[in-house]
Design a binder for these strands. Structure first.
Lengths: 194, 194
DNA sequence: ATCACAGTAAACCGATCGGTTTCCGTTTTC
DNA sequence: GAAAACGGAAACCGATCGGTTTACTGTGAT
């Protein structure tokens, strides 16, 4: 347990991992024990367990996005950059212990769409759609808004498949996304003329 | 509370509804109270709560499939019958209180793919894929196996979107499925030549 | 009439739930 | 060096967890 980090950081880290691995119903005692933080400290850092759920989800957002989305600087085409997301998802599933997209899983478990954790989940799922949208605009796609939503759906569908089947995806997500991009006329190496 | 049904039926009914509405972490006390069944009866009808999860999921399977899949006897083309699944999903989401595909949600919540409930979930998700596969074979699709998986992914992706966004789908699932079928050359009114 | 069974209500078990509080040691601050 | 703040360990709260047990009621078969 890296005691170098602040209690808040340790808590957010442990919460991010345990809420994902065991579900949001894991107890705060187990959480605090894993973080090496007392319940007293936890409850003066966070108003409630619900707030900790939301904040731990939010704190992992940027890293999760960077893990999934290619950096801004590379010379790949929009299509390749989009497909890279599905390839990274494939890797995550293949590396084992994949339990679904953390945001979708949390929203599913919380049931209540107004729960602070659900709000955070909605926000970060929108960011993936926004990434797709930006790339599609760069590629000059005809209907980037619809297509971005469809790609996000394929991403979450692949995620659901990985959870239900509990086995590697074998590139089926990337293949489906590619088929959809083909149908929409977004081809390899293509950029908008503008 | 229809006391006409047997305790077993009442329990499976209440469990199917409450596990879906509140998640699998709902207590057995609440379950038994909703079913009007004593805990003693519950535990001589089912070995454990885990078994009740699996059996209630299984007992709802046939009705859920019939709700989603068109009956065997209709004159629609395979493509239309496939798209009908997505339209019914759209209706379910639009009617409110949609909390995702019960099988995916349960698998996500249980985390453990060897949990009896996860096994049942995997089985019934496969049945949807099988339905798509049958229709695709009828339509003479080139790669029905891959396409059936892709359609199932779109279905689950649309389901995830409905949960995360907590708003109607607006036909995006059917539109995505249609685009994929178009790309695969499965057109309206088309049947295999055989 | 009686026996057996099915089933409910409720007490009970140890463990855990989210959350609060007390106590005490350590570190920072002046 | 004294005082104040930080934070961990652990007791504590009422409620609930999954599961068992006891006690009692109603029913049908004989």
């Amino acid at each position: 347990m890296s005691t170098s980090a602040t209690p808040r950081e340790r808590l957010l880290d442990a919460a991010g991992e345990l809420f994902y691995r065991d579900g949001v119903n894991i107890g705060v005692d187990a959480l605090c024990k894993a973080a090496g933080v007392s319940k007293k400290s936890m409850y003066q850092l966070f108003r409630s367990k619900d707030e900790l759920i939301a904040e731990s989800l939010a704190s992992r957002g940027p890293a999760y996005q960077m893990l999934l989305q290619p950096g801004a600087e590379d010379d790949r085409s929009p299509r390749e950059r989009i497909l890279a997301v599905f390839e990274r998802q494939d890797d995550m599933v293949a590396s084992g212990n994949y339990l679904g997209c953390p945001y979708v899983s949390t929203a599913v478990e919380l049931k209540n769409p107004e729960h602070p954790g659900s709000v955070v989940a909605r926000h970060f799922k929108q960011q993936l759609t926004d990434f797709f949208h930006r790339e599609l605009v760069k590629a000059g796609a005809e209907d980037p808004s619809t297509l971005a939503i469809q790609l996000t759906m394929i991403f979450d569908g692949a995620s659901a498949r990985a959870v239900v089947r509990a086995q590697p995806l074998g590139g089926i997500g990337a293949a489906t996304a590619a088929a959809l991009l083909d149908a929409a006329g977004v081809h390899a190496g293509e950029f908008a003329l503008s």
